[in-house]
Simulated assay, not measured.
Amino acid sequence: MSSFRRCVAHVAVGAAIVTTASLGTGQAAGAPLANCGKARQDVAIRSSVPLLDWSENFGLDTAGNLWVARVMRGEVQRYDREGRLTATVEVAAPGAVRLGPDGLLYVVTGNSPLAGSGGIVRFDPMAADPVPTPFATGFPQPNGAAFDADGNLYVTTANGLHRLRRDGSEDMDWWARVKVEGSNGVVVAGDSVYVTANFVATDGAPVGRVLRLSRTNPADSTTVADLTSFGALPDFVDDLVVRDGALYVTTLAGHLVRVDPKSGAACNVVSTQPLTAVVADPADSSALLAGSEEGTVLRIRPNS
């Protein structure tokens, strides 16, 4: 979700969510979500200027460096395995950062209602001075992104979910069959395209939903889980990752939620500050890295 839209959400409901929210599944909306078990967390990268350092999303290059999208600063920052800042690349309102099949990093740009039309740029993360070049343009507030095994790039935008071919052209036949409202994060595993979506349901209840689409037949869409906060307050779902067969989802209320993609059963890994993005930690097979609105990147070790 665009960070600026989340700021608006904070004004309306953020304080109440962070202090009183508890998640529930779609089967028991508003019920407290059980904890997965004791998890450990520590700081992987500390924010130098809170909020200005908003870590909207991040990705990894082939050397294991972490590239953090600082949406408020308009740049993507590279950190080595020790958490040291080693490079900065200017990208306007950056969102998701994903390593492509060609070894280049693909970065969503224009992740803001103030940015006008957005798109995707790419650059060589191994270059001494990386220079972003356009890959695709013309998308309203693009945010999340993920590659599939064939090198297609899926991008969430203000008007849904798009699939781009390796040459940057859009698969319009695929687009014509997919229907996703309020799409945000996206990850691909096999034939499954998992998407987080935020919207108001037909009964008026705000819903943070995890969906599964078929990569080969996007019209085939099912709800994996609905994650709502205490009472009628929305808990916006943001990014997600697949790790050891489970989905891990970040939320505005500061939860990292583990979801079983088969049953939809969910539990709360940690409750902390508002979380934006999550990736597997390449340096620790037991850990996940989670970004935050404050800017800190957390290292979280779920209880498996």
Score class of each variant (00 low, 15 high):
residue 79 Y to N: 10
residue 176 A to T: 13
residue 273 Q to Y: 11
residue 42 D to G: 14
residue 119 G to T: 10
residue 93 A to V: 13
residue 185 G to H: 03
residue 110 G to N: 12
residue 234 P to R: 06
residue 104 L to T: 03
residue 156 T to W: 03
residue 272 T to H: 10
residue 267 C to R: 03
residue 50 P to M: 09
residue 90 E to Q: 14
residue 273 Q to R: 14
residue 60 L to Y: 13
residue 33 L to A: 09
residue 227 L to C: 04
residue 83 G to K: 06
residue 28 A to V: 10
residue 293 E to H: 08
residue 22 S to R: 13
residue 285 S to W: 06
residue 211 L to H: 07
residue 187 V to E: 13
residue 246 A to N: 11
residue 169 S to R: 11
residue 304 S to L: 15
residue 99 L to D: 05
residue 255 H to D: 12
residue 268 N to V: 12
residue 128 A to W: 05
residue 188 V to C: 05
residue 291 G to A: 05
residue 277 A to L: 03
residue 303 N to A: 15
residue 193 V to P: 01
residue 226 D to Q: 12
residue 148 D to P: 01
residue 45 I to H: 01
residue 290 A to Y: 00
residue 102 D to Y: 10
residue 201 A to W: 02
residue 298 L to D: 01
residue 44 A to S: 12
residue 122 R to K: 14
residue 282 P to I: 00
residue 181 E to T: 13
residue 217 N to L: 13
residue 133 T to G: 11
residue 31 A to I: 07
residue 107 V to R: 10
residue 100 G to M: 02
residue 293 E to Y: 10
residue 56 E to I: 11
residue 72 M to E: 12
residue 12 A to E: 11
residue 294 E to Y: 12
residue 86 T to N: 09
residue 218 P to A: 06
residue 266 A to P: 02
residue 122 R to A: 03
residue 297 V to E: 00
residue 152 N to A: 11
residue 202 T to D: 15
residue 246 A to Y: 11
residue 167 D to L: 07
residue 262 K to H: 14
residue 234 P to A: 05
residue 189 A to Y: 06
residue 33 L to F: 04
residue 74 G to S: 14
